[in-house]
């Protein structure tokens, strides 16, 4: 994949994630009993980036999304929350993806739960009390369900959008190339 092509693809994914995030904010939260819980549709994009781009470029997508979303609709404190959440979920997804036989559903659920963990860690640091963490079970049980749902969505996207196929094949090809070079 040429350099320009890759740049455009990264920019495309990041902007899609920002737009999805902004649109999601306009939808009233379906989880009225649990403030802070949300669908996490932007997770779909992170999953697709993870499956179609090398690790370094996936990080670029996430960082661009975070910065743009904070600039467009956010404050410093929401940046802290979402930054920590995104970092935790990215590391977790990367780890789970390398486990044998885990499909995109497991990866997406991990991302969604660890996003909540990261957010609550920051929230409990800000509030200076551990008791905020006691809210984690409610958030992450919802997170697992929404994570499975976004995972299914990402699965269908990956398998039905032909262009993504192309990038996926490219990624595996590149990895194989790198292996050959090393050998």
């Amino acid at each position: 994949m040429s350099n320009n092509q890759r740049l455009v693809y990264i920019a495309l994914l990041a902007s899609q994630a920002v737009i999805i995030g902004l649109v999601e904010r306009m939808i009233p939260s379906p989880f009225f009993f649990a403030p802070g819980a949300k669908l996490g549709l932007a997770n779909i994009i992170t999953c697709m980036a993870l499956y179609t781009l090398p690790v370094k470029d996936t990080m670029k997508v996430i960082v661009i999304r975070l910065l743009l979303q904070t600039l467009l609709a956010g404050t410093v404190s929401t940046f802290l929350y979402s930054g920590m959440g995104a970092l935790a979920s990215f590391l977790g997804m990367l780890f789970v993806k390398h486990l044998p036989k885990v499909s995109i559903i497991g990866v997406s659920a991990t991302g969604s739960v660890l996003h909540n963990v990261g957010q609550l860690v920051v929230a409990s640091l800000v509030a200076n009390t551990f008791s905020v963490m006691l809210y984690l079970p409610i958030l992450s049980l919802i997170g697992i369900l929404t994570g499975i749902a976004t995972g299914i969505a990402a699965h269908y996207l990956l398998h039905h959008v032909e262009r993504l196929h192309y990038y996926m094949d490219l990624k595996t090809l590149e990895i194989d190339d790198m292996k050959e070079v090393r050998l």
């Binding site: 486990l99 885990v102 497991g106 659920a109 992450s140 697992i144 499975i148």
Partner: peptide, 19 residues
């Protein structure tokens, strides 16, 4: 979902009750 997905999800439920 595969078996290992279920396993991952179980671990996640475990993590969420850790606090």
């Amino acid at each position: 979902a595969t078996i290992s997905d279920m396993f991952v999800i179980l671990v996640l439920i475990g993590i969420s009750f850790l606090p």
